[in-house]
């Protein structure tokens, strides 16, 4: 077999796998629609699925810029809760409206994320340890605030009244698409994206190639935090309020995003990460939607199904691949 034939075969294999993946998803959607008596593919339900998929999409794009360089930061959930409340305070209590909501939320997310990542990078401790530590700190700050607020205002969390445009369609969807394009370009087509992937892939080589590891990780965390901050704005706008959590309860905020990271990572050989995240978040939200329509209890049955699907996707995407599923 000649070199160009081999090369073409590899390309064809990738395209074939992409077709199989999307055809498989389409088939699953059609079957699910039949099972739930056609209520899956109604306009209203699809709108619900998309609107619920936007928050995990943004969080996961943010995670992508942080996790890929090897920093597994588990404080992201607590960061979102705290930042969203800070944004709401700026919008409502300080009367800064949309500007306060968006600017303060994103700024707070960036500062907290830099603190968390710096804690790992500068102190040279494993990121999951520093992340959990920071999560407890962020949760505690929000809980203290909630306790004081409940005494003074009668309600433990601030509720956003007005300024909720970012949580309504079609603006949410437009922001989502723009977010996807930016995430795709930054991750796949910029030096920062490549350097983040190089550090995650082989730190030693990245060093030898003159890539400034610390700077790249912190820059990645900055970009990631902007996406996470936007996710916090969207969720705050959509839900109106985000309650405080304690004892690492904030991890549940990013549960769908963690599942999406796994799913998109499993299919990285077939579709690039930002695309996988978009597809994965819709798929997981759709899965929960179908299970709800089928009456499967949330918190138990739905999570079991999700876990099974993630493992299955991992197996399928690495079929015939020599090596370990990472």
């Amino acid at each position: 077999m000649s070199f160009s034939q081999k090369n073409n075969n590899e390309k064809m294999k990738r395209i074939r796998n992409q077709i199989i993946l999307f055809a498989g998803i389409a088939l699953l959607v059609v079957i699910s629609n039949l099972i739930v008596g056609g209520s899956l593919l109604t306009f209203g339900n699809l709108k619900t699925i998309i609107s619920h998929a936007i928050f995990p999409s943004f969080v996961t794009w943010g995670m992508m810029f942080i996790f890929t360089s090897g920093i597994i930061d588990l404080s992201i959930g607590a960061n979102i809760l705290l930042s969203a409340n800070v944004g709401a305070i700026f919008a409502m209590d300080l009367g800064m409206g949309y500007f306060g909501l968006i600017f303060a939320t994103i700024l707070c997310t960036v500062v907290l994320e830099q603190l968390s990542v710096n804690c790992s990078v500068s102190l040279k401790i494993p990121s999951w340890i520093s992340g959990l530590g920071m999560a407890l700190v962020f949760e505690a700050i929000l809980t203290i605030y909630a306790t004081i607020r409940s005494k003074t205002e009668g309600s433990s969390v601030i509720t956003l009244k007005g300024f909720r445009g970012m949580g309504t369609m079609p603006l949410m969807a437009i922001v989502w698409i723009v977010g996807f394009i930016i995430a795709y370009l930054l991750f796949n087509r910029t030096t920062l994206g490549l350097n983040i992937r190089a550090i995650g892939g082989n730190e030693g080589v990245a060093d030898a190639m003159g890539i400034d590891k610390k700077k790249t990780i912190l820059l990645g965390a900055l970009v990631g935090a902007v996406f996470i901050g936007l996710a916090a704005v969207i969720q705050e706008s959509y839900a109106g309020k985000l309650s405080s959590q304690s004892g690492l309860g904030s991890l549940s905020t990013i549960f769908k995003s963690l599942a999406t990271v796994l799913l998109a990572g499993s299919f990285e050989r077939i579709i690039s990460m930002p695309v996988g995240i978009m597809v994965g978040s819709v798929f997981i939200t759709g899965l929960f939607n179908v299970l709800t329509l089928l009456g499967v209890p949330s918190g138990t049955g739905q999570e079991i199904c999700l876990g099974g699907i993630v493992i299955l996707c991992g197996i399928i995407s690495h079929w015939g691949f020599k090596g370990v599923v990472k």
Partner: peptide, 15 residues
Amino acid sequence: GIVGNLSPVVNIFLG
């Protein structure tokens, strides 16, 4: 000394 999860062309010009 290569980064396996990047394409060969990116490896050539990495950094």
